[in-house]
Amino acid sequence: MPEPALLAESLSKRFGGLQAVADVSLALRPSEIHAVIGPNGAGKSTLINLLSGDLRPSAGLIRLGGRDATSLSPEARGRAGLGRSYQKTTIFPRRSAFANARLAAQARSPRALAPFRSADRDDAVNARARAALAEAGLLDREAAIAGTLSHGEQRQLEIAMVLATEPTVILLDEPLAGMGHGEAQRMIALIGRLKAGRAVLLVEHDMDAVFTLADVLTVMADGRVIAQGEPAAVRAHPAVRAAYLGHEADAAA
């Protein structure tokens, strides 16, 4: 089994009296999609924010590429190879799609903050931005202002920006939320391609997508991990059926 690209050990996060995440451990390995599911309020988004550095854990350890990253800022984790999408699309809406990708590619450049060169004439950065747009299937929309793209295209753009930073770990927070069927199918295909050489964490409510994509599945409820392992085995787990899939059955009934 390959070394984990990102490792979380006994992560906990407490907001006042609320234990949002309790004693969660997981390993993200290269070329694997690790899905995290659970009912609303299970602590999935808090977990992703702990892994990306947007929140600091109350207890526990995070290792990124074999090094302790527990107290690193989001930007330091970004430079260390972690890229993420947000539940609410987080892009630069007034710039073109290409300019968005170019900024992302620039962040990974050795001249990311050069004060006197021309930002839009760095061939290596421009090439990386275009490659990322192409991988996300958005190259034909590169000139469009990001804020005018459709919801699905904006989510594709966010992933293109993550790709342009050449990440080893990608965290996706509900990438299919609010998408129509066609958009969702395209996004599922894109996520499936993302795992080539990269470790992907996928938080998603769409069960069809999760069981199509996931190599490893973690189920959370009330901030805790109640089952973890291969999707087929987890699906059959009694605690999961009771705590999570049961909710769906209730909802359907």
């Binding site: 930007e75 330091a76 900024l103 620039q106 990311a112 930002a119």
Partner: peptide, 21 residues
Amino acid sequence: SPFGQALAAAHENERRARALG
């Protein structure tokens, strides 16, 4: 320059700018 663009990017969307590194 890249520096100036990064400065403006942090103004437009600080969260995204930080997540990019």
